[in-house]
Design a protein around this nucleic acid. Structure first.
Lengths: 198, 198, 198, 198
DNA sequence: CACTAAACGAGACGGTACGTCTCGTCTTGTG
DNA sequence: CACAAGACGAGACGTACCGTCTCGTTTAGTG
């Protein structure tokens, strides 16, 4: 038999750590998220944290995996493609106001400061999310222009769609001006229809 | 008499600190930029640093003031408005590869993690830069559409222009795909011409 | 029925633990004797050690029981009482050079630092050894002075005999200067003969 | 000029550390003397301790230097040499009941367990104390036998004098049986007079 | 040309968090 | 049910920086 003897990883400790990290980030900010504080709040030994995670970035990445995937999912049931796009942008903008969205924002910040954190974050989350954005926007555009777009063209359209929103959030820290959303949505559909992006 | 006696602030110490901070950021990353490291590298006492700056963010902000303002200036001498926009986007994209651009990127990162740093950064740099972007893009658009755009409309167009570029740099850490630049430039001019943004 | 079912205590595990403890003490010193190190070296689970011993002091006490009792036994076959005493002192001095003697020395050290260890050590080893010293020296003195000494008088003579040797070993860490042994032996016999110790 | 600039070592921090170490040793035993506990009790940063001492053994050695030297000094004013010896043995026996004596006992214990501690302890304290014992006993014997003893002979007599006392304290943990003291004192004078030790 | 007085280098100080180590207990299969 | 394996809560280890605080030394005016 391959399965080894002895105790297994404690699921309750794992959840306590993820919740503690999340709570501390919201309450005291990223600088307050120390391993000591997480351990104390979670009622867990530091060694238990170091056994399963290499850094606080890894812990926060794990909280994203639990929380963010569904919150950033594409939902395409609206009457028109334009409405679908507007809905998705609103959904993303609102996500950044929630605790899980603050985790995402903090990780985006840390990724600018620490190359290793950036690599993990991109490989462990952003890449996957980008693929889901490609698929989600691709399906909407197929409905709009009547045929499949090229992958590279869709990628540019994702940048045009998401870029202004992230720019406002990351650079100006604003909760996103609502009027920007219909402009961006309209524009992406126009560009797709005119075939400029290919 | 108002002028007091004794030595004045040492300009050589000031420059040594700014250079040391810059060098350490490039060599060892933001986490390596500690006051102790700056003091050691600059051959300066920690107290001298604390006398003139409140934090390492303030130091890095000072280095930006020296380096970034001209690098992010709008130059409008090209043959067409479209070329002007493309040139500016290339200039910004290239700036992020330089040491001073890495300082900007690090401060953008830190701004996601620390509200006080964010406030200082926005009040001390980003706001001013945004005004220059409004003015720069505004002038180009006036040449393109033949009349003055509204301030809010111009602001949206700045978001549409800069957003995709920042999105690629901050979210994906890419050196910016060059094809995105002409697409973005073209699109902003079209939107301006169609008056969608107002 | 008194005899219970299931496996009994593993004798091989017991011996592996005692040998491992002994080896580690000699190789890495008392501080290196950790339960983890013993378990690893003995190929035994920590729980197995804690099941049968309360502390590393108890383990070392067990190794003494196997090794030290015969090494500190009194042998009285020499030509004269004086020679018997000299032989015994040499035997004790040499014992402290051997692995088992290092265990004894370590436990004597630990007894100065930890009252509980001291209690166990004295009740579990030193008391018994002292009784054997009383008996051993008592018999030699009976041969020397021609009659039985009082118990208290013999006890003082044990102190006079062993004290200087232990003083050199424990206080100065010396391998005992050989000339001290005949002096001490001679002196104890003289004191006994003069009846000073009573 | 040789004297350097900047702040000097804080004497109050030094004393707080030594007192804290002493107090904790008495209250909680040697195992309770951790750097963390000393720092907490002394109201001092751990780094301050590590800056000036390499280990808790070094700290305890420093407390001895302040406390033990005078307590183990030879005082020779009594009516007879025998009384001088008895007084000194009583003084030493009582010293081991005091806090500083417990420090000495703990260091003697640690010296059995840790060769580096033993080396420091012997070079930093025991050697010096032994020289003072040689001088102190030497002077008394000169008065007793009427001429100077050889150094080696005096050394053996120190072993004979102090050995039984240390044997009782270190091996049996007893507060020393008082009757042993006059016996030992008498015996050393006799041996010296008979010239056995040479 | 002393005499202030502030800025400087050096670095000790009380703290906090780091990541590692070992403790003694508890949990999980295996023989 | 004893055993090997090893995860767990606990807490000390020694290190790195934090921001504050003395120290002399140096440097610019002022009287």
């Amino acid at each position: 038999m391959t399965s080894r003897t002895g105790p297994r990883r404690s699921e309750s400790a794992r959840l306590a750590v993820l919740n503690a990290a999340d709570d501390i980030l919201v309450e005291r900010g990223f600088a307050g998220v120390t391993i000591e504080a997480i351990a104390a709040r979670a009622g867990v030994a530091k060694q238990t944290i170091y056994r399963w995670w290499k850094s606080k970035v890894d812990i926060l990445l794990d909280t994203l995996a639990d929380d963010a995937l569904e919150a950033l999912e594409w939902k395409t049931g609206a009457a028109t493609p334009e409405e679908d796009l507007r809905n998705h942008l609103h959904q993303v903008a609102e996500f950044f106001q929630e605790p899980a969205g603050q985790v995402l924002q903090a990780l985006l910040g840390q990724a600018q400061l620490d190359k290793e954190a950036a690599r993990k974050f991109r490989e462990g989350f952003l890449q996957e999310q980008h693929e889901r954005d490609l698929a989600g926007l691709g399906e909407i555009l197929r409905r709009h222009v009547g045929h499949e777009m090229g992958e590279q063209a869709t990628a540019y359209l994702v940048d045009l769609l998401m870029g202004p929103l992230y720019y406002q959030i990351l650079v100006f820290g604003r909760p996103v001006e609502k009027d920007l959303i219909p402009i961006t949505a309209r524009l992406v559909l126009d560009v797709a229809a005119q075939g400029q992006a290919g």
